[in-house]
């Protein structure tokens, strides 16, 4: 140990936050995003078009909203694989309400409340009964979407009120969509929550050492419960946007999104083992995934093949630094 030889005066910091930032994952990821942007604009003449770019944001805005809450949850050492199923259930609840004559305000409330209830259900099972979140949410993933299937079978809900379409199809100004504004606002809210508040600090502490955090007087179960609640809430909000955008609800809505959300979070530099990661990282990751999907779409690459790139991206960004370390001692 070298610390015994260190000077008695201990500085606050050795590295300025700016110097630390330069060496960070986020900067590397930003470089990747810029490279993809340039590659896209060279590959397709349709890429650098304001409306096309605006359209492209819909590829990630809804998923990114969930990814913000998921990032906090994963940093705390838990995970929620039921998010896409919460969307299905919330969308089904809204669709059922439409059949009973509900208007837009009621639909928004129903979407949000369904999300919160699902999050609370996960939270109670994990923090109240002490069950592992990965299995619990694999279970609720089947359960929540399963309820949608029971209700809808192979049918679909349509006929959403005209005002409801604003959330997924409306534009605030010129090419700036409502969803994009919501995404930006939520990014700021979650960034502040994680990086600037006591709550965020507790999330990091729990993720690094839950026992040590509990022994420091932090109410670990309460913090984790709130995080499940937030993840449910975000899934509910995403359900409103997605349902509004599609204008219909099928039980297969948002199928497989949980994996894309987790990929976005991990790509953003959040450790799947908990304890580290940032919201700016997740924001950049959202853009990277959106750009990749959009660029490949312009080149007429089918969606399923894009998923290969997403999978390679997920493994590659984690494997490459480790390979680098292995071969360069």
């Amino acid at each position: 140990m070298t610390d015994a030889a260190s000077p008695r005066h201990v500085p606050n910091r050795l590295q300025s936050p700016a110097a630390r930032l330069l060496k960070s994952w986020e900067v590397l990821l930003l470089a990747v995003a810029v490279a993809i942007f340039i590659a896209n604009s060279l590959a397709s003449p349709y890429f650098l078009n304001a409306w096309n770019l605006s359209d492209a944001t819909f590829n990630f805005t809804e998923k990114a909203m969930i990814a913000f809450a998921m990032a906090l949850l994963i940093i705390s050492g838990e995970i929620d694989l039921s998010v896409a199923s919460i969307i299905a259930l919330a969308s089904t609840a809204m669709g059922a309400a439409v059949q009973m004559g509900a208007g837009t305000p009621e639909l928004v409330v129903i979407g949000i409340v369904t999300g919160l209830l699902c999050g609370a259900f996960n939270g109670v099972l994990v923090t109240g009964l002490g069950l592992p979140s990965i299995v619990v949410t694999i279970g609720t993933m089947s359960l929540f979407r399963g309820i949608s299937y029971i209700v809808l079978g192979d049918q679909a809900y349509r006929g959403y009120p005209s005002g409801f379409s604003y959330f997924g199809q409306g534009y605030v100004w010129w090419v700036i969509s409502f969803e994009f504004v919501l995404f930006a606002v939520l990014a700021v809210i979650y960034g502040v929550l994680l990086h600037k508040t006591n709550f965020g600090r507790m999330v990091y502490a729990i993720g690094n050492n839950a026992t040590g955090a509990a022994f420091s007087g932090i109410k670990v179960a309460r913090v984790k419960f709130i995080l499940f609640l937030l993840t449910g809430l975000m899934s509910g909000i995403a359900a409103i946007c997605l349902t509004s955008r599609l204008g219909s609800t099928r039980p297969s809505i948002a199928f497989g999104w949980e994996l894309e959300v987790v990929t976005m979070v991990v790509l953003g530099g959040v450790s799947i083992l908990g304890g580290s990661g940032t919201i700016p990282g997740v924001v950049i990751a959202a853009f990277v995934m959106g750009l990749v999907t959009f660029g490949l779409g312009l080149l007429n690459v089918p969606g399923i093949v894009m998923s290969i790139f997403i999978g390679l991206l997920l493994i590659g960004v984690i494997a490459l630094p480790r390979l680098w370390q292995k071969w360069r001692p």
Binding site: M1, T2, D3, A4, S6, R8, V10, P11, N12, R13, L14
Partner: peptide, 14 residues
């Protein structure tokens, strides 16, 4: 306390 800086990871201390 002997440390390099106050924002050093506690894991690196003796």
């Amino acid at each position: 306390l002997r440390a390099a800086s106050l924002d050093q990871d506690v894991g690196n201390l003796s």
